[in-house]
Amino acid sequence: MINRIFAIMLVLSVIFGAASGNMGQVCDAALNSCVEAVDLFLYLLGGMCMWGGLMRIAEKAGITDMLSELFKPLLKHIFKELDLNGMAFRAICMNITANLLGLGNAATPLGLEAMRRLEQEEHPGGTTSRNMIMFIVLNTASITLIPTTAASLRIRHGSAAPMEILPCVLFTSACALAAGLISAAALDNISKRRKPK
């Protein structure tokens, strides 16, 4: 998908640029955007390392495990008919905690582990299980508690209060996640009613 978008955007910008007479700006953009990309990368590098370092301390201090225990009672209502002492549920709890803390590097391997374990425990075959969908929705809806990237870019562009967006982010994330989970549960019920086992 990103393949086509990338190619189409570049081709269209040449065509539009010629049609609108903006070719001069398009040429500037072609030469300068890559420099801006490296500039942005360097700007974000510091923050990424700082949070990566702090989160490693949190991980080693057992904060991730502690929080994971805390979320178990909440998560067991989302995943039905899943062994709560199994490896799949454990990996799910760890993955959610890593996501909450903004530990992208740790969350993805844990998420892959959870998917693999779900497959082993539920034997869904070629069609996804209900619990897999629930887990996917939990991961595609962002549940990060502190929006560090957004905050660093806001500072870069001179925001007076880079963290003022926090209440909006938390409220929006929670509602988006709820909407995703409710729609997943509803669509699951509808498809079950259509095809009774």
Partner: peptide, 28 residues
């Protein structure tokens, strides 16, 4: 996320995974 997570399993029919995830995005 959907591509990477399902990519590791043998699942090819993802049913309403995309629809529900996009519902969350749109609400967001």
């Amino acid at each position: 996320t959907i591509a990477v997570y399902y990519g590791i399993t043998k699942v090819r029919n993802t049913r309403h995974a995309i629809a529900s995830s996009l519902t969350a995005d749109f609400t967001g």
